[in-house]
Design a protein around this nucleic acid. Sequence first.
DNA 1: GCACATTTAGTGTTAATACACTTAAATTTG
DNA 2: CAAATTTAAGTGTATTAACACTAAATGTGC
Lengths: 150, 150
Amino acid sequence: MKLEAELKNTKPLQPRQRALLNILFTASWLDCNQNRQLRGFGITPPQYNILRILNGSVPKGLSVLDIKGRMIDRSSNVSRLVEKLRLADFVERVPHHEDRRMVVVTISDKGKTLLQEIEHSRFLDEKMPGQALTEAEAMELAHLLDKFRE
Amino acid sequence: MKLEAELKNTKPLQPRQRALLNILFTASWLDCNQNRQLRGFGITPPQYNILRILNGSVPKGLSVLDIKGRMIDRSSNVSRLVEKLRLADFVERVPHHEDRRMVVVTISDKGKTLLQEIEHSRFLDEKMPGQALTEAEAMELAHLLDKFRE
DNA sequence: GCACATTTAGTGTTAATACACTTAAATTTG
DNA sequence: CAAATTTAAGTGTATTAACACTAAATGTGC
């Protein structure tokens, strides 16, 4: 559905304002979807984000600050999120050898298994969003978003 | 900056996955900006969203559910947000004449003044995001986002 | 070496989200 | 008309975001 219909907007919007609102609205829509998908697995979207970041950094792992720098939501409190994941045995935390300020976080086998299950469930759902776009359109969309942030 | 650089991503992403991440990242970036802009005015982005919706609905006002249906973030708790705005005298709440379940919310003069101040401050800032896009590109971006949600 | 600033992780606190639930009024149905 | 259902608003609660702050380790300049 078009944004104007979704927001029941009456007044016409300027193109840039319309794009801005549409970005926020679409992201909120995605976040809501992701929340529901992840709910059954006992993790939240930011926690899922961390697990995927760590999965891309095996076997070395990452420091808390490195994780933060790679997260979608930069305002996340990584220390607390990592602690939650550790309590659920999805990640491991070990002090850094040389720099004792740092903590190296790695994904555990249980965490990897969880990611595979989530991936698998998504595949079954066929609910991967954005399927209406062609690959070329998806690339163009990403490019325009990059430009939007300039 | 491109998304891959922002997220320090190592592995290449599928186009749709890249678009998805870029939507979430750009929205988070916008939200952070908006948070900072609104902070000085004592309101949050969802509260600002409500004020603008109500400003577009003068003089009739809207019910709580109508507001919710027009909000960017559909999971907001409108009752509590409206109560916050009422305590700050930015909105007024009156019971509906015919249907006593409903409450009609309208923006106050103080609320309108606040919106004007915010608008003015943004204009001074020249920090309106998305200026790097042409109008045609902004329209294309909004169109692709509509299609993404299909 | 020592004072000073910087970096890294974590904490404290307020407010907002997410979701289920409750309450009350209106509408539908038998 | 009375009972059941639906709709609207609000509440309860646990979790998370947002921001400033602290504590400890490292780096820097003198």
